[in-house]
Design a protein around this nucleic acid. Structure first.
Length: 420
RNA sequence: GUGCGCGUAGCUCAGCUUGGUUAGAGCACUGGGUUGUGGCCCCAGAGGCCGCCGGUUCAAGUCCGGUCGCGCACCCCA
């Protein structure tokens, strides 16, 4: 069999890496700006970490995890998302004793055994952040503001929409769920096959069904937002007011449903209509019960994660050009003696900080010039026999198509100006 | 897991309907046109188990079956 990558896994090639760096650096800067510290956690955890936090009955846990036995028989799983591991680390390292509020961000690869399609991979990168120890609605709004600022910073603010809702808490959600079940059971025969199944697995999901019949029935279904308890209503109101006060636009979407069981109260998604079926580029919410569930003290928390591949895809659609990594100076030479000089010169100029490229293949000058052009170099230095003798080289400006002779000092000065 | 579509040069694709010489194009690559000068142009070259296995046929890139791979959508999700 021909050697190849695993289905759903992909390489990020050099032609795309400039864009990846741009996006990742912006994301990290946004997190740092808001006071988050990076945490690095393992890609592999005991299966229980995910089963207990994400929810044993969710699709992720039931059929999408890469789970296998370690040599001693214990069940291990490649992380399908980041929050569970961060919470595990928060609890295991007793971070709650260090400060009443801890803000963390992480980045890395996640693994879900799904059928791949546009914007969906089995191995994919996420950047996420979590705030532990704050119940305040301002924390929810602050987290959202950070994400919003990030999208703004990479030029995507016009391409994404913030959708917002509340799922209630341990007090009002169970009552609502019962109310919803009662309503749908009354209309069971009118629901599509999938939704009849959802009655048992995840009745909230029926609200999001795309079948016409189900949409009709859902219209008259009780809404979570109408049935929040007083505390949750107040919390949700304050989140909205906080966002209003700093001018961040949002749409209320009561249909937002989470695939993970741990969410409470605020849930949100940043969506786009430019990526086909995978419209969510970032999503998150509050999860006040999770820290306790994983053995820590009762600790409110709110967090989010974004899918980098999806953001890269969207970014490419919106801003197609301009993220290639370019060479500053290309060094061309003629003859064996000049070859030594070229090698040394490249070394010296690089120490001034410019990106320098040369290839020592002994090709014709024409061929080297072509390569210089392809590399995107702004300048090409030409060293030949004459230049060897004089110690002065030709500097060609590739944009202006002009050239003049320069000495070493001038060349180094230019290089340090090009330094990026 | 389900449905639909697609596998021909490194990439994008034509050829398949109606089987018949050495399987084509554009881009990319190499060399030359210019003995030391890129882009545009011109010339030349290199590059193909036509995904794989089997069947039909005198003859299969082309028709049929299977298989593997890829894509999109459903489910679900970042």
């Amino acid at each position: 069999m021909k050697i190849r990558s695993i289905k759903g896994f992909h390489d990020i090639l050099p032609e795309d890496i400039g864009r990846w760096h741009h996006i990742e650096e912006h994301a990290k800067r946004s997190c740092e700006l808001y006071g988050y510290s990076e945490i690095r956690i393992p890609v592999l955890e005991f299966t229980e970490v995910f089963a207990r936090s994400i929810g044993a009955a969710t699709d992720i846990v039931e059929k999408e995890m890469y789970t296998f036995a370690d040599r001693d028989g214990s069940s291990l799983t490649l992380r399908p998302e980041g929050t569970a591991g961060v919470v595990r680390s928060y609890v295991e390292n007793s971070m709650y004793t260090k400060s009443p509020q801890i803000k963390l961000y992480y980045t890395g690869m996640m693994f879900r055994h799904e059928r791949p399609q546009k914007g969906r991979y089995r191995g994919f990168y996420q950047i996420g952040a979590e705030i532990f120890g704050s119940e305040a609605p301002e924390s929810d709004a602050e987290l959202i503001a950070m994400i919003s600022g990030f999208f703004d910073g990479i030029g995507l603010s016009k391409s994404v929409t913030l959708e917002l809702s509340s799922l209630g808490d341990g007090e009002c959600r169970p009552a609502y769920k019962t109310m919803l079940m009662d309503y749908f059971i009354g209309h069971k025969d009118e629901l599509c096959e999938d939704c009849q199944r959802r009655l048992d697995t995840n009745p909230l999901r029926i609200l999001d069904c795309k079948q016409k019949g189900c949409i009709e029935i859902s219209k008259n279904a009780p809404k979570m937002l109408d049935n929040l308890c007083d505390d949750c209503t107040q919390h949700f109101t304050r989140v909205k007011e906080s966002l209003d006060s700093i001018g961040i636009p949002y749409e209320i979407n009561p249909k937002i449903v989470r695939g993970l069981d741990y969410y409470t109260r605020t849930v949100f998604e940043f969506t786009t209509d430019q990526l086909g079926a995978q419209n969510a580029v970032a999503a998150g919410g509050r999860y006040d019960g999770l820290v306790k569930e994983l053995g820590g003290p009762e600790t409110p928390a709110v967090g989010f994660a974004m899918g980098i591949e999806r953001i890269v895809l969207l970014h490419k659609e919106v801003i197609p050009e301009g993220f290639e990594k370019k060479t500053d100076i290309y060094i061309a030479y003629l003859g064996e003696e000049a070859r030594d000089a070229a090698f040394k010169l490249a070394y010296e100029i690089r120490s001034s900080g410019a990106r320098v490229e040369a290839d020592y293949g002994g090709k014709s000058l024409k061929s080297q010039m072509k390569r210089a052009d392809k590399s995107g170099a702004r300048y090409t230095v030409i060293i030949g026999e004459e230049e060897l003798k004089s110690g002065i080289v030709k500097l060609r400006d590739m944009e202006e198509s002009s050239e003049h002779e320069v000495g070493m000092e001038e060349l180094k000065k230019l290089a340090s100006e090009l330094k990026s």
